[in-house]
Computed example of a mutant assay.
Amino acid sequence: MTTRSVKPLHGAALLALSALLFSLMGVGVRVVSVSVNNESVVFFRNLVGVLFFMPLLLIKGVRPLKTTRLKSHLWRTTYGLAAMYCFFYAIAHLPLADAMLFTYSAPLFTPLIAWWWLKEPLTKRMLVTTCIGLVGVLLVAKPSAALLDSQALIGMAASVLAAFAFVSIREMSDTEPAFRIVFYFSLFSALISVIPLAWAWQPIQQHDVLLLVAIGLLATASQIIMSKAYGLAPPGLIGPFAYLAIVFAGVIAWLRWGETPDLTSLLGAALIFSASLLSITRRMRG
């Protein structure tokens, strides 16, 4: 078995950057979903992801994209695409804080899935820090009564499916570089997500096209960075850093719509940072 290198600081920093880009993407999805349906948003997000790699193909050909792990890429696509549909639906139909909460609670499940799937160690410290981070997310997001709605189940499904996608990235990161993982995810997802457009296609305005392109670029860049992050450290170790997306979303909402964080939000942010730092320092001492 190939020995994976573990670089928690680098992995955590990259995952934090990925969380920032994902939060920006989420805001874009929320805006464009007012006039564009979920099927079209998912398709264009993946189409832009494929086009993102065209310069690489033109310069270096298909050689860098050759793989012997096609089955692993298909599994990663299955989990990730299903999570994407659920996530975009939640953003369009639930309060933004609730949707972000569901999606970025995925790190709550990643240590358990990584322990079951990859046989990676699961310590009490990991479970405690993850729970602390989740409490912080609840304090920042202050979920509304929409959590009790049946639509919330779709948001929860996005969280669990995203956790499986994260661990699947870790599983093949010993041989697959980040750009290859993201390319196959975008390619397979675009091919699959074009099917629903047969009955869900709608005309799209020019300004919406520009926003969809921006969403796709943000998503693809964040996917590459996230894939690299989970290749540098186990999901159970750096997963809490994905919670930072909630903090970033709160800051963006403050800057964009004048929503000011209260004492509860600040306390939640402190818990999120504390859980993230505890998970890193624990591994560094070990």
Results as ranks from 00 to 15, higher is better:
Val6Ile: 15
Val6Cys: 10
His10Tyr: 11
Gly11Val: 13
Ala12Ser: 14
Ala13Val: 11
Leu15Asn: 11
Leu17Val: 14
Leu20Cys: 13
Leu21Thr: 00
Phe22Ala: 05
Phe22Pro: 00
Leu24Phe: 02
Leu24Arg: 06
Met25Ala: 10
Val29Cys: 09
Val31His: 08
Val32Cys: 03
Val34His: 14
Asn38Trp: 01
Asn38Arg: 08
Phe43Glu: 04
Phe44Ala: 00
Phe44Met: 09
Asn46Thr: 12
Asn46Ser: 13
Gly49Trp: 02
Val50Cys: 13
Phe53Val: 00
Phe53Arg: 06
Met54Trp: 15
Leu56Tyr: 13
Leu57His: 14
Lys60Cys: 15
Pro64Thr: 12
Lys66Thr: 07
Arg69Gln: 14
Lys71Phe: 14
Ser72Trp: 09
Ser72Cys: 10
Leu74Val: 09
Thr78Trp: 12
Gly80Val: 03
Gly80Asp: 05
Leu81Ala: 02
Leu81Arg: 02
Leu81Tyr: 05
Leu81Gly: 01
Ala82Tyr: 02
Ala83Thr: 09
Tyr85Cys: 08
Cys86Val: 03
Cys86Arg: 07
Phe87His: 08
Tyr89Pro: 00
Ala90His: 01
Pro95Met: 13
Pro95Glu: 06
Leu96Trp: 02
Asp98Ser: 00
Asp98Thr: 04
Ala99His: 03
Leu101Trp: 06
Ala106His: 05
Pro107Val: 07
Leu108Ser: 08
Leu112Ile: 14
Leu122Asp: 09
Lys124Trp: 11
Lys124Tyr: 11
Met126Glu: 13
Val128Arg: 02
Thr130Lys: 05
Ile132Phe: 14
Val137Ser: 08
Val140Thr: 03
Val140His: 06
Ser144Thr: 11
Ser144Asn: 11
Ala145Ser: 15
Leu147Ser: 02
Leu153Glu: 12
Ile154Ser: 04
Ala157Asn: 04
Val160Asp: 02
Val160Trp: 03
Ala162Tyr: 00
Phe164Arg: 05
Phe166Lys: 07
Phe166Ser: 08
Ser168Pro: 04
Glu171Met: 09
Met172Ala: 11
Glu176Phe: 11
Glu176Leu: 10
Arg180Thr: 01
Arg180Gly: 08
Ile181Tyr: 03
Tyr184Asn: 08
Tyr184Thr: 06
Tyr184Pro: 01
Phe185Glu: 01
Phe185Thr: 07
Phe188His: 12
Ser189Asp: 12
Ala190Glu: 05
Leu191Arg: 09
Leu191Lys: 11
Ser193Asp: 07
Trp199Tyr: 09
Ala200Phe: 12
Trp201Cys: 00
Gln202Met: 12
Pro203Asn: 14
Pro203Val: 08
Gln206Thr: 14
Gln206Phe: 14
Leu210Glu: 06
Leu212His: 07
Leu212Arg: 02
Val213Gly: 01
Val213Met: 15
Ala214His: 07
Gly216Leu: 03
Ser222Met: 11
Ile224Thr: 13
Ala229Asp: 05
Gly231Met: 06
Gly231His: 10
Leu232Gly: 11
Pro234Phe: 03
Pro234Gly: 10
Pro235Cys: 15
Pro240Glu: 08
Ala242Trp: 00
Leu244Thr: 04
Ile246Ala: 06
Val247Phe: 08
Gly250Ala: 06
Trp254Met: 01
Trp257Phe: 15
Gly258Ser: 10
Glu259Pro: 04
Thr264Pro: 00
Gly268Glu: 01
Ala270Glu: 10
Ile272His: 00
Ser274Gly: 09
Leu277His: 10
Leu278Val: 13
Ser279Val: 12
Ile280Lys: 02
Met284Tyr: 13
Arg285Asp: 05
